[in-house]
Simulated assay, not measured.
Amino acid sequence: MTQDTPAPERIASVADRAFFEQGTENVSLRDILREAEQSNMSAVKYYFGSRDGLLRAVFRRRRARMSATRNVLLDRLEVEGRAGDVRALIEVSVLPHAQYLREAPPASDYARFAARMTPRVDYSSDDVDHLEPADQRIIRSLRHALSGLPADVVDARIDTAFQMIVGAFAAYEARREEGLDYGPRTLDALSTTLVDMVTAGLTA
């Protein structure tokens, strides 16, 4: 990233990395602006409205990266002829979360940040164009695969499924940080449990 990069993008990029490495509560706006080479300490308010606006911008960046990962997996499902398989679609939803959390440093609150922001996303809307491209593909494919159920039931289950997936990873992250020795012991175990439960819940 260079000086030619627009200031809002530089700030959001620095904040994204700092939050990932240190946790959202352990990074000051002053430190973010200093690293983004912003001399005006009001730049966050100017470009994002508030700290919460900056958090939303970081969330959008992370959703876009997750979408790119999921699109690769969805393309593979199409090649394999499994684009309408509910379990495979849920694996595409779950496994990138596990991978991102696996790569997060000890101080990160990556999953808890996602759980804090995800309730603001409506996965049950008839119009999914506001979602990231991969989420659009997953939801449309799930709706088609579950077309034997009432549409409102399907939409409610899909929204609940997305919220549950993020919440489960947030609980795992919190327990790991606090040294609590219960629940799924590994990310692989959690991922398998989530795929089993969400697939069963969607198709019940």
Rank of each mutant, 00 (worst) to 15 (best):
I139T: 04
D152I: 09
I165S: 09
A168I: 02
Q136G: 04
T160H: 14
E103S: 08
P133G: 05
V128R: 11
D129I: 04
Q99T: 08
A174C: 10
P105A: 04
I138V: 12
R157K: 14
A114R: 14
D126M: 12
R140Y: 07
I139C: 00
Y110K: 10
V128P: 04
D159N: 14
S147P: 05
A111R: 06
A151I: 12
P106V: 08
G148E: 03
A104I: 05
A134K: 02
S141R: 13
D127I: 13
A145L: 01
V166Y: 03
I158W: 04
I158E: 05
H130P: 06
Y100L: 15
D135H: 11
G167S: 15
Q136S: 02
P96H: 00
H144Y: 11
H130D: 13
D126L: 09
S141E: 05
E103R: 08
R120Q: 12
A170S: 10
Q99W: 06
T118S: 15
D135Y: 04
A174L: 10
R112C: 00
R140N: 15
A168Q: 01
P150F: 12
S125C: 07
R112H: 08
A111V: 01
D159V: 01
R157F: 11
Y100K: 14
D127Q: 09
A168N: 02
Y172E: 00
R175E: 01
A168W: 02
A98M: 08
H144T: 13
D155R: 12
E173F: 03
D152A: 06
P119M: 11
R102L: 04
V153H: 14
R112Q: 13
D122R: 00
Y123F: 12
D155M: 02
A107S: 09
D129V: 12
S108C: 04
A98Y: 02
Y123E: 00
I139N: 07
Y110F: 15
T160F: 03
R175V: 03
I139S: 07
P96A: 07
S147A: 14
I138Q: 01
E132R: 11
F162A: 12
G167H: 14
H130Q: 08
P96G: 03
L149M: 12
M117I: 11
R102F: 02
A98D: 01
A98Q: 06
H97V: 02
P150S: 00
S108E: 05
A115F: 06
D122L: 01
R140F: 01
E103N: 08
S147G: 07
Y100E: 15
D152Q: 11
S147M: 11
T118R: 15
D109Q: 15
S124R: 01
T160V: 15
D122F: 00
A104E: 04
P119F: 03
F169N: 09
H144D: 10
F169C: 07
L146R: 07
I158P: 07
P105I: 06
D155P: 01
R143H: 02
Y172L: 00
D135P: 02
R140I: 03
Y100R: 15
A171G: 04
A161M: 13
G148I: 02
D159W: 10
A115D: 02
